[in-house]
Computed example of a mutant assay.
Amino acid sequence: MSTPAVILVGPPGSGKTTVGGLIAERLGLELRDTDADIERAAGKPIPEIFLEDGEPHFRALEADAVRRAVAEHTGVLSLGGGAVLDPATRALLVGLPVVFLDVALAEAVRRVGLDVPRPLLAVNPRQRWRTLMEERRPWYTEVARAVVTTADRTPDEVATAVLDALERHPA
């Protein structure tokens, strides 16, 4: 069974898509983002899915998108921030080259911006982000082969750190 070369997990604003793109370019692979897969399949943006269909429906779409991507994609894979909420997804990620991009609150808020439509951060984004991280950090850590801190690093430096971490922690 082939699996993705690198799987990135982390909260909104951690740089999964940006760093994933850089890693994919360096390795000569394609980047796949499960949030983009969900939007393409649903025919609408994630905030609309949350609003019109509810979070449980979105989470079901997300679990399915991750399952398919892990089975089909051999490049770099970026998972949505909440993908680790699903126990089946966490079980699926065990033993795979997963890296948790750990980002500080202030940096995430600066990167995400407060005008970007993120349904789970709509009300009191700083407090909500902090709460999400408290809930999700144990799961990000559980599925990760390595943790890379993004603080005071450029996306290029984070990409290098991810590749170095995977070299130090092979399967």
Rank of each mutant, 00 (worst) to 15 (best):
V98D: 05
R110D: 13
N124C: 01
E48M: 11
L114W: 00
A83L: 11
V123C: 00
T160N: 13
A60G: 05
E55S: 07
F100C: 14
G80F: 06
E52A: 09
A24T: 10
V98F: 02
L101N: 11
D156Y: 07
T34F: 00
H73R: 12
E142K: 02
R118W: 15
E52N: 03
E39C: 06
G113R: 06
R110I: 00
P155D: 07
T89K: 08
P119R: 10
R59H: 11
P117Q: 14
P155F: 01
P125F: 11
V158Y: 02
E52T: 04
V148K: 12
P56D: 11
L121M: 10
R136L: 13
A91L: 06
E135T: 12
E134P: 00
F50G: 03
R32H: 09
V158H: 05
V143I: 11
L114M: 10
E72Q: 15
L27N: 00
S78G: 13
L101Y: 04
V94K: 15
T74S: 14
L114H: 05
L132G: 02
L92P: 15
V116F: 12
E30C: 03
A42K: 00
T131C: 00
L96H: 01
Q127G: 08
P87H: 05
G75R: 03
T141H: 12
E55Y: 07
E157I: 14
G54M: 09
L93H: 13
P47I: 08
P47A: 10
P138D: 05
L27M: 13
V94E: 15
A104Y: 01
R32K: 07
P45L: 12
D37M: 07
L121A: 12
A71H: 03
G75L: 03
V98A: 06
K44H: 04
R32V: 15
R26G: 07
L114K: 02
G54A: 10
R145M: 10
V103Q: 10
A144K: 13
V70E: 07
V84D: 07
L93V: 11
T131H: 06
D86S: 14
L96Q: 08
P125G: 08
